[in-house]
Computed example of a mutant assay.
Amino acid sequence: MSDAGEFIDEALRREGSWIRAEQAQARLGNGLQHYGSSIGATRGTVRDALRRHPGLEHDEVTALSSELWEVPVFERRLAAIVLLQSKVHLLTNTDLTRLEGFVREGRLRELVDPLAVDVIGPLIAGLEGQAKARAGSVMDRWAREHDEWLCRAALMSPLRALRGGGGDWEAFVRQATVALDAAREMGAEAEVVREAVSTVLNDVAKRRPELQFPSPVP
C-alpha cells in the first residue's frame, strides 16, 4: 500500500464508529464493508492526505484512486471519489475507462451519483475538441448499455453543467431517450434509470424552464 493510501485507510478506521457501520450496512448492503466514518470525516481525510502529499500528478492520483477502490470498503471507495473530485482538472477522456469500471462495481446511488456529478461531468466539461467528442461517444455508449448504473451515470453526469446554465441539453435528451428505451427491458432495475432522468429534469425545470423534454418519463 502506498504511503498516501495507508494514511487514508488508517485515518478512516480511526474516524469509524461501529454503530454507524452497522447502520450503513443495514441501509446500503451491496456486499461492502463499512468503517462507519462520516462523509465529513472522509472528505477531511482526503484533504489531509493531499496536504501531506502535495504535488500529486495524474498517474499518482489515478493509481491512488484505484488502490482505494480495490478494497470493497464503502468509505475507501468514497475517498477515491473525493480524491478524483479534488483533482478532476488532471483527468482526461482516457480516464473514463477506469471510471467505467468504478461505476460497474459501485452499484449504489451513494457512489455512482457523486462519481457522475462530481467527477465524470466536470471531467467532460473541461475537455475540448476531439477529446470532448470521444467522451461524448462514451456517454452515448453508456446510455445504450443494458447496465442500469452505467445508464444512470451517463444521465447524471451533465447535471452540474445544466444546472449552471451550460451543458449539452440535446445530448442529454438523446441519451435519456435511448436509456429509457433500454430500461424497458431491465425489469425492476429500470427504476434506477428513470429516477436519474427525473432527477435531472426536476432540477433543470427549477432553473431553466425553457428546456423541455419531448415526452413524459414512463
Rank of each mutant, 00 (worst) to 15 (best):
S2W: 03
D3N: 12
A4L: 03
A4S: 11
F7S: 05
F7H: 11
I8G: 00
D9N: 13
A11E: 14
A11F: 06
A11Y: 04
L12K: 01
L12A: 04
R13D: 05
S17C: 06
S17K: 10
R20H: 11
E22S: 14
L28M: 11
G29I: 10
L32A: 01
Y35D: 05
G40I: 01
A41C: 05
A41P: 07
T42I: 03
R47Y: 02
H53D: 06
P54S: 01
G55P: 03
H58S: 03
D59L: 12
E60G: 15
T62I: 09
L64P: 02
L64N: 04
L64K: 05
S65W: 02
S65A: 15
S66P: 06
S66R: 15
W69N: 00
W69I: 01
E70G: 11
V71M: 08
V73D: 00
F74I: 05
E75H: 02
E75M: 01
R77K: 08
A79Y: 00
A79Q: 01
I81G: 00
I81L: 08
K87N: 10
K87C: 12
V88M: 04
V88N: 10
L90F: 02
L90Y: 01
L90R: 02
L91T: 03
T92K: 09
T92Q: 11
N93Q: 14
L96W: 04
T97P: 07
R98L: 15
R98C: 07
L99H: 08
F102E: 09
E105C: 08
R107L: 06
R107A: 11
R109G: 09
E110R: 12
L111D: 01
L111M: 02
V112Q: 03
A116S: 11
V117H: 09
D118E: 15
D118T: 12
I120S: 01
P122D: 06
I124N: 00
A125E: 15
A125P: 06
L127D: 03
L127G: 04
G129V: 08
Q130Y: 13
A131N: 08
A131W: 09
K132D: 13
A133F: 10
R134N: 13
R134I: 15
G136P: 09
M139S: 11
D140H: 13
R141F: 12
A143W: 08
E145W: 06
D147V: 03
W149C: 06
W149V: 11
C151I: 13
A153E: 01
A154I: 04
L155H: 10
M156V: 12
P158A: 13
L159A: 14
A161D: 14
G165T: 05
G166I: 10
G166V: 14
E170D: 15
A171F: 09
A171K: 14
F172Q: 02
R174W: 09
R174A: 15
Q175H: 14
T177E: 13
A179D: 07
L180H: 10
D181Y: 09
A182K: 13
A183V: 08
R184A: 07
E185N: 15
E185S: 15
G187L: 05
G187Q: 05
G187M: 06
E191P: 07
V192P: 01
V192E: 10
R194D: 00
S198M: 14
T199L: 15
V200R: 00
L201F: 07
L201Q: 06
L201V: 07
L201E: 03
L201S: 04
A205W: 09
R207G: 04
R208V: 05
P209Q: 03
E210H: 04
Q212D: 12
Q212I: 12
F213S: 06
P216D: 05
P218H: 09
